[in-house]
């Protein structure tokens, strides 16, 4: 039987408690960036203007040095027969849907990362490999990622893709809002190439103003809804359409940020480590009391 008196017990318990809490309270040096700048940029996608030329798909691959077919092959419209999703080989794709206002001109919708204001991927990533930048872009850091794919589970738009076929160094692939290009003053590749400027690049505040203006001036043309203005707490990419967004296969999402509930639970459980430490103290106390009781019985 351990010859441990009560004072020793308490002392060691106290030391252990502080050691654990001290270890955990230390602020994480390597925390991910999550900036929500007032003048963050965005893109307004006007699906009533998009002609489905798919030049953006080509420009995107070109800008990211990904293997691609020659540009003129992208005029093939047979790909529209089936819904496509962005994946590890294409950060953006265009899908086509019937247009109730004019059956001659189908509605084309470009899909890519929405660059949420409160990104689920940034919140979820175990090692903080995702960052929300001042420019609005949500980017991924290859030097951190462990390939757990929790970002894919978390993303409300189902955007991040994983290179399942690679045994070594598989990467998470998604639109990076041409972070490297915008940093040096260039436009995102898709915005630059769009022949009809269905994609307008500007500060998010301006874009919302412009989008509202377009709806006000053409109430018959547009549904009164800017997708991304409030969805999951707002996104950098915004959409206008001439029909209900659910018909264009946009997900139906609330206005609360996607990581909201899980973060509040996390922060509730770990509010300055009070709950875990008090649980530790409680169990320690319980142990001590039952031990004393047993001893006195003996």
């Amino acid at each position: 039987m351990a010859k441990q008196n009560r004072r020793d017990f308490l002392k060691t318990a106290a030391v252990a408690g502080t050691a654990i809490s001290g270890l955990s309270i230390k602020p994480a040096k390597a925390a991910p960036k999550n900036i929500l700048s007032e003048d963050r940029m965005g893109v307004l996608v006007d699906t009533t203007v998009c002609i489905g030329c798919r030049n953006c798909e080509w420009a995107c691959k070109n800008a990211h040095n990904m293997p691609t077919q020659p540009q003129d092959k992208y005029s093939d419209r047979s790909v529209f027969k089936e819904m496509r999703r962005p994946d590890e080989n294409a950060f953006t794709v265009v899908n086509e849907y019937p247009n109730p206002q004019n059956s001659e001109i189908p509605t084309d919708v470009k899909v890519q990362c929405m660059h949420c204001d409160h990104p689920a991927c940034v919140s979820a990533c175990i090692v903080g490999a995702f960052s929300k930048h001042e420019s609005g872009a949500v980017t991924w850091d290859t030097t951190r990622c462990i390939g757990c794919r929790y970002c894919m589970v978390a993303c409300p738009f189902q955007v991040p893709a994983f290179q399942f076929d690679k045994a070594l160094n598989p990467q998470i692939k998604k639109c990076d809002f041409c972070y490297e290009r915008t940093k040096v003053g260039k436009l995102p590749a898709c915005v630059e190439i769009c022949p009809v400027e269905a994609l307008t690049y500007g500060s998010r505040i301006d874009l919302i103003r412009i989008a509202r203006d377009r709806i006000r001036r053409n109430p018959e043309k547009y549904v009164n809804h800017i997708f991304g203005e409030f969805e999951v707490g707002g996104t950098s990419w915004l959409y206008l359409a001439n029909q209900d967004f659910s018909k264009l296969q946009f997900p139906k999402l609330g206005e609360k940020p996607a990581p909201g509930v899980s973060e509040s639970i996390q922060h509730g459980i770990f509010a300055y480590f009070v709950p875990p430490v008090s649980l530790y103290a409680l169990l320690g106390g319980l142990m001590w009391i039952t031990k004393r009781k047993n001893e006195s019985e003996e």
Binding site: S75, E104, I105, P195, V196, E197, D206
Partner: peptide, 26 residues
């Protein structure tokens, strides 16, 4: 950015009709 740029303005004017009858963006 409230108005499209020149390239987009031209294209929007032309492609809307041309696309309607040709069903392509040639």
């Amino acid at each position: 950015i409230s108005k499209p740029d020149l390239e987009a303005a031209y294209h929007r004017q032309c492609i809307t009709c041309h696309r309607e009858w040709s069903h392509q963006n040639s």
